[in-house]
Amino acid sequence: MTDRELQQKSVQLRKKLLKYIYQAKAGHTGGSLSCIDILNVLYNRVLNIDPDDFKNPDRDRYIQSKGHSVEALFVTLADRGFFPESDLETLCQYQSHYIGHPTKKVRGVEQNTGALGHGLPICVGESLAAKMDHKSHRIFTLLGDGELPEGSNWEAMLIAAHYKLDNLYAILDYNKQQITGSNQEVMNTEPIKDKVEAFGWSVKEVDGHDLKALEDVLNNGPFAEGKPNFIIAHTIKGKGISYMEGVLKWHHGVPNEELYAQAQKELDDLELAL
């Protein structure tokens, strides 16, 4: 896949996730749009995974801690060939496996998540097991900035540093907004870099919508031998849709018919311009 095709895929994945949120009349729109570029790069340029051999013990792991952005994960997995995209027509419908959070009933999903502050501790366990077994696969998680205050995250950071888990990569989808308002207003977590470094991690900052920069950071670890890796990916909530970018109501807002058509048109135009 060329770099241009990867960029086009980011737009296509945005179109898809909006389509399924629109159809289901439910979803976490803003956060899915802020992290979709990260997922695109992970699944197409970083993770050593094979949809036909998904349970291979040497595969890289991706566990999505911010489970509510499940639409981004589902469209990425479908695009990568884990299941037919048509399955997503049932998203959030009665008796569907495709619920509003990641579930292992969906092929390709590593863990059931949704409650916040759970992904990183599980990844610490996975990373410890890999070290015990002298395996070289990497373990990735995606954290939301709203869930960062959860104490379990900071407990996990202590443990990861204590055991020198440099095979662990925590990516923060730093769109700087959560359901009630900005992180600053709800619970200030800054200075994040200083805090995480003080917990013994190696931290890099990156533009979370710059595919090349993401790929370079995620594929060039560990950043420091013996230190777990933390990536602050600066993102924009609702990225790609003019009327959604940085607007709080799109945290889990669903567009009406007119706004949905506008969003798809903007993305069509963006794709053509690439």
């Binding site: 366990g125 996975e126 097991a129 407990e155 996990a156 443990i159 204590h162």
Partner: peptide, 26 residues
Amino acid sequence: PKQMVEVGIVEQNLVGVAAGLASAGK
């Protein structure tokens, strides 16, 4: 010693980390 993981007084992570280890086959 290699089969014991001390996490300190963090019961939430005791269980979360254990889940990750179990998921990896331990």
